[in-house]
Design a protein around this nucleic acid. Structure first.
Lengths: 344, 344
DNA sequence: GTGAAAGCGCTAACAC
DNA sequence: GTGTTAGCGCTTTCAC
C-alpha cells in the first residue's frame, strides 16, 4: 500500500547514465571522479525534484555499516534514565547516528534478548546500562570485538569501558555537608544494594563518617531499592526508633519523595525537625514545599561522553576501555538545617 | 575490528547443502518444503552451535519490510512522554517490532528532518507526537500511503489517525469537581496555547463553568507553556490580584509544581488557603507535602493503542483513520478543600 | 526433497 | 569522465 520511492537505478535510466555516476554525484564524489558539471547538475536536480532519499537498508548491507547504535536502559520512565536517553539521542543524532531504544525493565533476560536483537539489526555499537550482578554476557561482546560502552552501571571486576557519575565522591561531599552542618546521627536510605551506583554512594557515605571520626553503625544504612515506597517505609521505621536521626541521606530521587511523605505524615517538618539531602536532582527538587538539597548528576555529560566513547571505539583499531567518572554537583537549598548554632 | 558473524551461505557450504535449504529450515518452513528430518536437524544444530543470527539488514532489503517503527516525541525528559515511550516500547517489542527513537525537542524543523531520516531507514511506520500548528508535512505521508499514527497531539482539521487522552472530558470533570466543592473563583493555568491537548482542556474547563452557570471571564485563563516556570510566575501574578481565586487548575504536571512553589513562598497553604488540581498524574503527585488531586492520563493505553493502530494500518489494504480518545481518571487526594460547609 | 538463480538498492574496484 | 560488474546476505520462484 506504500508508494514506492525512487531508486538510483531509476534515476540512471531516466537520465541515460549509469547507476555508478548517479551514486557518485549523490554522494558528493562528483569532483573526485571528475564528473562533468552538467551531468552532476542534471542528476542533482532530478533527484531532488523526485524527492530521492537513499535506501539506508541497501546502503547498510553494502557498506556493512548502519550508522545505528542500540541503547538499552533499565527503565525509561525513571527521569534519570529519561534524561540520559535524551542526551544520548541528541549527541548521536549530532554525529549522524540513529538510535534503537530498548527498555530492559530491570530484567536480565530482556536485556540479553535485546542485545541479540540489536546484533541482528547490525547496529554499529551498543550503549547499555546493565541490570543484575553479572556482566559475563557483556564481556562476550567484547571478546567478539563488538563496540560497547556501559553507562551509569558497570562491573568493577570486568574490564569494559564505562561512563558513570562519581558516585562515591558525590555521596562523600553530601555526607560531609551534613556533618559540617552539625549532623552526627545520619541515616542513609539506599537503593538497590547490588547496583554499583548504590555501592559507591554507600562507600562515600562511610568514608565521610570515618574522616569526621563518627563511628559507623550498621543501622545507619537501610533500604532495598530505588523506589518511592522504599523511602517511605524506611523513614517510617527510622522515625519510630528510640534515637531518631537528625538527618537523612536518600540515595535516589524517588527514595527522597517517600521520605518527604513519611516525615509529613508524622507531623514533622523539613528541615526544622529533620534534615534531608537527596542523590539526583530533578525538575521538581526546587519546587517541593521545602526546596531540597541534592547531589546533581550531569546527565548531559553522561550521555554525551557515552556516545563519544562509543564512536571512538568504532573508528579505532584496538578495543579501547575508557572508564570515565563524571563529577556530581551539590545543590544547596533549604532542606538541611545547621544545628551547630544550637549546640554552642 | 568486529568478528564476522556466520551467514546462511557459510552454513550451506559447510553442510554441503544449498542456501535455500538452510534458509527454509531456519525460517521454520522445513515441513512445508518437505525437507528431510535429518537435513533439517543437522542445519538447526549447526546454526545454533555457530550462534547464527539472521542479518536483518539483508532480510529487510529482500523483504521490503524492516519490522521497525519510528517514534518521534517532543521531549523524552518530560515524564509524560517518557511514560508513553515506555508503553510504546513494550508493546512494539511484544509485536516483534524495533523502535527508533527521535526527540524533536519541540522543534518542527527537527521533526521534519527526523521523518526524512526514518523514511530513509525504511521504517514500516511512524508514531509521532507532532510539534507546531501545521500538519501538512504529515498529511503528505498519508498521501504517500505511509502508515502513520499521531499520539497525544493531533490536528482536528487534518484527517489522520490519532490516539489521545480525552482531554476535554478530563478537564470538565476536574473543573466540575472543584465546583462541587464550592469553588467559583477558579483560575486555570494553561500550557502551550496552540497545542490541541491544551485547547481541549481549556474547552472542558469552560464547559464545566457554563454548565454550572458560572460566568466565564478571560482572566480566568493564563499561561503560556507546560513548563514549571510558567506555573510559578502565573501563580505569583494570581496571588497579587485584588480577588484571589479559591482554586487553581493547572493544565500540566510541571505547571502544578510551579504553582506549589509560588503558594509556599507566599506563606499560604494548600488546601487551607487555596485549592489545587493538576492535569497528569506523576509518581511524586502523592508524595508532595499536600498530596495532589490529579487528572491521570492512561499512558499505558495511549502507547499500546498507538502501536496497535499502526500495526493494523500496516496490514490493511486501505488507509485506516482510526481516532481514539482514552478516558482520564480523577485521582482525589488532599489538595482541594470543600468550601461548601463554610458557606452554609 | 533440494538446488540454481535472480534480485532487493546500493557502492566500489576495475575497466576504458 | 563514465560504465560494467560483482556482491553485501537474504528469500523465493522455478526447475527437476
Amino acid at each position: 500500500m506504500k508508494k514506492i520511492p525512487i531508486t538510483i537505478k531509476a534515476i540512471a535510466e531516466e537520465l541515460k547514465v549509469s547507476p555508478s555516476t548517479v551514486s557518485r554525484v549523490l554522494n558528493g564524489q562528483a569532483d573526485q571522479y571528475r564528473i562533468s558539471k552538467k551531468t552532476a547538475e542534471t542528476i542533482q536536480e532530478y533527484a531532488h525534484q523526485q524527492g530521492f532519499v537513499p535506501n539506508q537498508i541497501a546502503r547498510g548491507l553494502r557498506l556493512q555499516k548502519t550508522n545505528t547504535i542500540g541503547l538499552i536502559i533499565p527503565d525509561i520512565s525513571n527521569p534519570f534514565f529519561a534524561g540520559i536517553a535524551r542526551s544520548i539521542e541528541i549527541e548521536s543524532r549530532k554525529k549522524g547516528y540513529f538510535l534503537f531504544l530498548f527498555d530492559s525493565r530491570e530484567d536480565t533476560g530482556l536485556e540479553k534478548e535485546s542485545i541479540a536483537l540489536l546484533m541482528s539489526k547490525k547496529v554499529d555499537g551498543l550503549i547499555v546500562s546493565p541490570v543484575g550482578i553479572s556482566g559475563t554476557h557483556l564481556l562476550k561482546l567484547k571478546q567478539q570485538h563488538f563496540p560497547l560502552v556501559l553507562i551509569d552501571r558497570y562491573f568493577p571486576e570486568i574490564d569494559l569501558p564505562f561512563i558513570a557519575s562519581d558516585n562515591s565522591r558525590g555521596a562523600f561531599e553530601a555526607t560531609n555537608y551534613l556533618i559540617e552542618k552539625g549532623h552526627k546521627a545520619i541515616a542513609c536510605i539506599q537503593g538497590l544494594p547490588q547496583a554499583i551506583s548504590n555501592i559507591q554512594r554507600v562507600q562515600g557515605f562511610k568514608e565521610a563518617l570515618e574522616k569526621a571520626g563518627i563511628p559507623f553503625r550498621n543501622e545507619m544504612i537501610t533500604g532495598t531499592d530505588f523506589g518511592v515506597e522504599n523511602g517511605y517505609t524506611q523513614t517510617k521505621k527510622l522515625l519510630k526508633r528510640t534515637s531518631v536521626p537528625s538527618a537523612i541521606f536518600a540515595l535516589g530521587n524517588m527514595i527522597s519523595l517517600g521520605v518527604i511523605k513519611a516525615i509529613a505524615e508524622a507531623g514533622l517538618k523539613i528541615p526544622e525537625d529533620i534534615s534531608l539531602i537527596s542523590f539526583d536532582e530533578q525538575p521538581y527538587s526546587a519546587f517541593l514545599s521545602t526546596p531540597m538539597t541534592t547531589v546533581a548528576q550531569d546527565k548531559e555529560s553522561l550521555g554525551k561522553e557515552a556516545v563519544n566513547s562509543l564512536l571512538e571505539n568504532l573508528s579505532s583499531q584496538e578495543y579501547l576501555n575508557e572508564k570515565k567518572l563524571i563529577p556530581t554537583r551539590l545543590i544547596e537549598r533549604a532542606s538541611v538545617k545547621d544545628i551547630n548554632l544550637i549546640r554552642k
